[in-house]
Amino acid sequence: MTRYDSILDTIGNTPLVDISQLSPMPGVKIFAKLEGQNPGGSSKDRIALKMVQLAEQAEELRAGDTILEPSSGNTGIGLALVAKLRGYKLRIILPENVSVERRQLLEIFGAEVTLSPGEEGSNGAIRMAETIAAQDSSYRFLFQYGNPANPLAHYEGTGPEILKDCPEIDVFCAGLGTSGTLMGVGRYLKEHKPEVKIVAVEPPAGELVQGLRNLDDGFIPPIFDGDVLDGKTVARPRESIEGTRRLLNECGIFAGVSSGAAVYGATRYIARTMTEGTVVVLLPDGGWKYLSSGAWTDDLDTVVELATRINYW
């Protein structure tokens, strides 16, 4: 179907594209799920819509309410799109060191943006949002890290799409942030094809967050369940940007920096454990929001240095 009543109906059903030219083993195929094709530009459109729908059903959201959410950009942009069409106001707590394009997009969609200290990373944005929500009960705090609608959007949408388009899947690989993608897709795939392996790729956030005072400032998303995973790999800025460049140069896919990280994690898992089979890797967003980072144009060392200070994940 190519005719829709609303832009929100175009969320999901993203394409799966063969990128086996990036596979380190000739017997292993890789397919990329292009979540950047969602209308707000990322996989987060799915969870934004689901969180709002479930809150509406529970009568926790009414027209005119203000939604509050900590986000480094993508969830905020998805929520801004949904909020605009459903009649809600939106306030996003955004770490001040995210790429300029993310802030611009939030603002043109009409979100109120409050900046949190960059050196505290996403932890700082979460803390600030929690404080505001505790002080003012008129805000509707959806809290993607602890909201079951986040993994549910992937359990009901992303997971079934992947299995339908790629029934031969052996491994699913995706970035780890809130863990919603991995939990939702992982549970769906394991229920329907138990032998599928679920592999997470994460940024070295604990090193990049300069304001971390001690380990007790640590954070594990309430929706995270380690039992769903079979492997987890850390992808540093250099490997992430190299992966992003390989996607463009070898596959013609213009994707964001965390997509490059996911590709690095997938190729590493393949090289370590596989000789044949099929891997699906999820690319969360397109490259548009990262043009100012120089990810494709600047000297690699320069971009890597910048990426240790700016939140591109």
Binding site: T75, G121, N123, D217, V234
Partner: peptide
């Protein structure tokens, strides 16, 4: 945690990296 936990075997030249768990990701 997804290898052999504290029993994970090492070879000469391996790198062991310790990182604190914090919130990350394109949230």
């Amino acid at each position: 945690r997804y290898l052999e936990k504290l029993e994970t075997k090492l070879e000469a030249g391996d790198t062991v990296t310790i990182l604190p768990a914090v919130a990350g990701g394109a949230i």
